[in-house]
Design a binder for these strands. Structure first.
Length: 630
RNA sequence: GCCGGUGUAGCUCAGUUGGUAGAGCAGCUGACUUGUAAUCAGCAGGUCGGAGGUUCGAGUCCCCUCGCCGGCUCCA
């Protein structure tokens, strides 16, 4: 039984003090207009702490947030005990956990997490109540100032209002809006995960603090489950799988410049094939523009002014050149190579453009963040009247690839005019209207990011959700009013006069390299048949069947199947195991029986034994596999 | 770039307080001729990321450097 009193003296009690119920009471209090300062901690004087209090877990997001936030405080408390010199920054709850930014007298490492964690458990066992108090701003400032908490003082200085709520947890005091769990014993199922650097206020000009990440849940099962998911994500890491499956490599000789191996190239080329097929069907043409172009072009396009830090430069015969970070200027030269009529519009010009961008060394990450990658780019030149339909058409390509081909869930975000935008406000308005209407008329739900557009135009972004719930931005549709102006692009309208075309930039997969990384993780390396580097592996029971195996292999290759033969003198079990580990979709076993009857024993990677088949039956089986390239 | 961690054989890793570099897998050779997730034996494989320093002696300690890993938006 938990009893407490609101600040106006009204008495409440909760039979089963689950965090959820406490939150309900909190809402109730809010509803009746009581002064609400927290869940129950604001009532410390009247509040009887039930020492057996065990919150049944918050199955609400708020409850989980609250628990994690309190666990962050608990961690800070433990840190203070172990490192009395430590000073504290902020400690919020985040998706899947919490962190606290701390300035330690001496750097700490991951090994120290164990120590901090055990101290947290001690503090938790002591069931120290979290007590809310209120101070005036000046008192609060003095209070934290006396404790040498300069970071807290700085934060207080930036706060508005007159009253500051603080939470006392034994010797540890933090200012905090709350609410919190009643006492430290409520934080039971937590784990500290990692330690990292983080700039104060996220600004690299500021000092760097030590950030400790942790997670917390309401039940042991949920915590374990979460930790298992982290393990699962690790096991799917495309960098690990890329090595194990021999798809690609990255070498110290080229940081951020991936090398694709034969098996990786199969996947890459299949992506390109389906991309080309689909774009051809949808009225696209394809071009290819050079990687190195005169600096003057980049001056004209504005990249020199806006993108220089991310570009690589070179010289040809002592004249300055740049390596393209984007494909648009090159594409525009193709457009401008001839006169265009409105009758040609819309022109949909695709390019698998290999671009180089200098990313900061610390930002590199496998195939996900690289310094050279292939954009599945396209530029669409059209009249203002055509914008909306073109956007809808692009959205349908996105739908086709994400949903139909790869089975991803995805969501859409619309980013509108930023403060430092360039160009005619009327055009901006038209463009945003087009994007919005295209979204609404197709019944697409979207998130709005006001002010998040590029300086040259608004955009729609597509975010994929992989099978373990992580999201990746891939596709984008951007309207551009700057480049047509800068390059004085024109077309001849029905009136015989020159007009300015509208230019759209768009990608579907974003970067082929990154998309491949996403696919590796999404499939955990087990590519579907149409993408699998090796679709079927031939396993002979012993070397005496080599002739039949070779014959079958060349027949399958002629039929367009990607096969490999395991010629090693190993037992079948070993060969099966290795093929399974290489995640090959089909294993074809050849032994005495098969050689005699001219058949093959088929084993599906997932379903297991499919029995014996003739060659024709086998080809039928392969043809029945999903394949978007028809 | 910055903070922390890390770098030993193709891969995954071990290497005590500084004292002659190890294992498993993969590879090669041989034996076995194998029926649905690892047959056995042998051989070979490393300037311990690179450069400097301390020391009689450095994979181990110090400094520099490079790569890699985690993180650097998510408001007390």
């Amino acid at each position: 039984m938990v009893l407490f009193t609101s600040t106006e003296g009204k008495r409440y009690e909760a039979e089963k003090a689950t965090v959820r119920e406490l939150l309900e009471v909190w809402r109730l209090k809010k509803a009746i207009g009581a002064k609400v300062n927290g869940v129950i901690v604001d009532c410390d004087k009247e509040f009887t702490v039930d020492t057996e209090f065990t919150p049944v877990m918050p199955d609400t997001e708020e409850g989980l947030d609250l628990l994690r936030h309190s666990t962050a405080h608990l961690m800070a408390h433990a840190i203070l005990r172990l490192y009395p010199e430590a000073k504290f920054g902020i400690g919020p709850s985040i998706k899947d956990g919490f962190y606290y930014d701390v300035r330690f007298p001496n750097p700490i490492s991951e090994d120290d997490l164990q120590k901090i964690e055990s101290e947290m458990r001690k503090v938790a066992q002591e069931k120290i109540p979290l007590v809310r108090e209120e101070l005036s701003m000046s008192d609060a400032k003095e209070y934290f100032s006396n404790r040498g908490e300069d970071l807290k003082v700085e934060m207080i200085e930036n706060l508005e209002g007159e009253i500051l709520s603080i939470y006392k947890e034994g010797d540890f005091v933090d200012f905090c809006r709350g609410p919190h769990v009643p006492h430290t014993g409520c934080c039971k199922f937590f784990k500290l995960l990692s330690v990292a650097g983080a700039y104060w206020h996220g600004d690299e000009k500021n000092e760097m603090l030590t950030r400790i990440y942790g997670t917390a849940f309401g039940t042991e099962d949920e915590l374990k489950d979460h930790l298992r998911r982290l393990e699962e994500a690790k096991a799917r890491d495309h960098r690990k799988l890329g090595k194990e499956l021999d798809l690609f490599s990255i070498h110290p000789e080229g940081p951020g410049f991936p090398f694709f191996h034969p098996k990786g190239m199969v996947v890459m080329n299949k992506l390109i094939e389906v991309w080309r097929n689909e774009h051809t069907k949808r009225g696209y043409v394809e071009i290819k523009t050079p990687m190195i172009l005169d600096r003057a072009l980049w001056l004209q396009s504005g990249h020199w002014d806006h993108y220089k830090e991310n570009m690589y430069f070179t010289e040809i015969d002592e004249a300055p050149f740049a390596i393209k970070p984007m494909n648009c200027p090159g594409g525009i030269l193709v457009y401008k190579n001839s006169i265009h009529s409105y009758r040609e519009f819309p022109i949909r010009m695709g390019e698998l453009g290999f671009v180089h961008r200098h990313e900061r060394s610390g930002a590199l990450h496998g195939l996900m963040r690289v310094r050279a990658f292939t954009q599945d780019d396209a530029h669409i030149y059209c009249t203002p009247e055509q914008i909306k339909d073109e956007i809808k058409a692009i959205m349908d390509i996105d739908r086709y690839f994400y949903q139909e081909v790869f089975g991803f869930k995805y969501h859409v975000e619309l980013s509108t005019r930023p403060e430092d935008s360039m160009g005619d406000p009327e055009l901006w308005e038209l463009a945003e209207k087009c994007l919005k209407e295209a979204l609404e008329e197709t019944g697409t739900e979207y998130r709005l990011n006001p002010g998040d557009g590029a300086f040259y135009g608004p955009k729609i972004d597509f975010h994929l959700e992989d099978c373990i719930g992580r999201t990746w931005q891939c596709g984008t549709i951007q309207l551009d009013f700057q480049l047509p102006e800068k390059f004085d692009m024109t077309y001849i309208g029905a009136d015989g006069a020159e007009h300015r075309p509208v230019m759209l930039h768009r990608t579907i997969l974003g970067s082929l390299e990154r998309f491949m990384g996403i696919l590796i993780e999404n499939y955990a390396g087990a590519f579907p048949y149409w993408l699998a580097p090796v679709q079927a592996k031939l396993l002979q029971v012993s070397s005496q069947f080599e002739e039949y195996t070779q014959e079958l292999n060349s027949k399958l290759r002629l039929a367009g199947t990607r096969t490999e033969v395991d010629y090693r003198d190993e037992k079948l079990g070993k060969k099966i195991r290795d093929a399974q580990l290489q995640k090959v979709p089909f294993m074809l076993v050849i032994g005495q029986k098969e050689a005699e009857t001219g058949t093959v024993a088929v084993r599906d990677k997932v379903k297991g034994d499919l029995g014996s088949m003739t060659f024709d039956e086998l080809i039928e089986l392969f043809k029945s596999q999903y394949n978007p390239i028809s």
